Amino acid sequence: MLQRVLGGLVVSEVGFGAAQLGNLYRETSDEEAAAAVDTAWEGGIRYFDTAPHYGLGLSERRLGAALRGRPRDELVISTKVGRLLVPTPERAAAGKLDDDGFAVPAAYRRAWDFSRDGVLRSLEASLDRLGMDRVDIVYLHDPDEHWEEASTTGVGALVELRDQGVIGAIGAGMNQVGMLARFVERCDVDVVMVAGRHTLFDRSAEERLLPLAFDRGVAIVSAAVYNSGLLSRAEVPDDATYDYGPAPESVIERARHLAEICSRHGVTLPDAAVQYPLRHDAVASVVIGMRTAEQVTSTLDRYDTPIPAEAWRELESA
């Protein structure tokens, strides 16, 4: 697998998104999680992304366990800060489940905190769950309603840790482009992760964020490239989802037009969805959520599929 530079680090063009290892939407076994990471490693993936939010720490624990024994200098791992996990044993004892999309016991609640103390506590807990003495990249996670604190004390704490050599690169990860552009403009960040806004379907990041990041030397990591499932199949179904909800008819029609272009050129819509963000020079990696070894293999096949130049011309003009 090809690699690119991110804030002085070297990352694989495809990154392993570990939200599913936290039982996103449904349960995943420890064995499935370990097999997925093993297959990713065998396929050349060396960048792994997780967060405390994913399964209330389960993703971090599983990812750390699966990577244990791998050469530490050969992999890059990122996690996120901004949501502290506060123990709620009474909820777990009562049989409550997490109410934020993960099929795990509600043994913790998430508490927003982008203060210096909150950032330090969050990172310390992440290192403990991962079983590691350092992480390479730390993102401020979804600070949409917390710009003031995240862009001052939050970034300041991460800069401090980076300057001390505790972490390698810092940034923010969000589902929007406006605030990410403000982070690039006003803060000393190395990277931003943009989810669902630099895809074959949604190109809103290309107008301002990507050119700005490229000019400032800030790397882009593109995530959620299937737009919540819309672009994940060769044929777009009537019940396709988009932005975490049912896709409007107009969205389905446009996605089917993209799928038709792909089909005419002998490739699939998911092939193009995986590769499209990597066509921009600002992008360091495409992070894709993967739950099983089979999903990893499928992702690697999509990444490796040759796509004719004429197909790209039609897709980009569409």
Results as ranks from 00 to 15, higher is better:
23 N>P: 03
146 H>Y: 08
200 L>D: 01
35 A>R: 13
177 V>R: 00
178 G>A: 14
27 E>W: 03
93 A>F: 01
83 R>L: 11
46 R>F: 01
256 R>K: 14
46 R>G: 13
26 R>N: 12
161 L>E: 08
210 L>P: 00
312 W>E: 03
175 N>L: 05
149 E>N: 06
219 A>G: 15
101 G>M: 06
15 G>F: 01
121 R>E: 15
200 L>M: 10
138 V>H: 05
81 V>M: 06
53 H>V: 13
41 W>F: 12
139 Y>K: 06
44 G>R: 07
38 D>Q: 14
250 S>W: 09
62 R>F: 09
146 H>W: 05
69 G>T: 06
79 T>D: 12
66 A>E: 05
25 Y>E: 14
48 F>M: 10
302 R>N: 12
156 G>L: 02
254 R>A: 12
115 S>C: 10
74 E>D: 13
42 E>G: 08
229 G>W: 02
88 T>L: 01
293 A>H: 01
175 N>S: 11
250 S>E: 15
136 D>E: 14
166 V>A: 15
181 A>R: 13
178 G>K: 11
31 E>H: 11
139 Y>E: 07
228 S>T: 12
48 F>N: 03
147 W>F: 06
152 T>K: 04
13 E>L: 01
116 R>Q: 14
51 A>D: 09
21 L>W: 04
191 V>L: 10
285 S>V: 08
309 A>K: 08
97 L>R: 15
163 D>N: 14
202 D>L: 02
50 T>A: 03
255 A>T: 05
188 D>L: 10
39 T>D: 04
301 D>A: 15
124 E>I: 09
169 A>Q: 08
165 G>F: 10
60 E>T: 11
118 G>W: 02
242 Y>V: 03
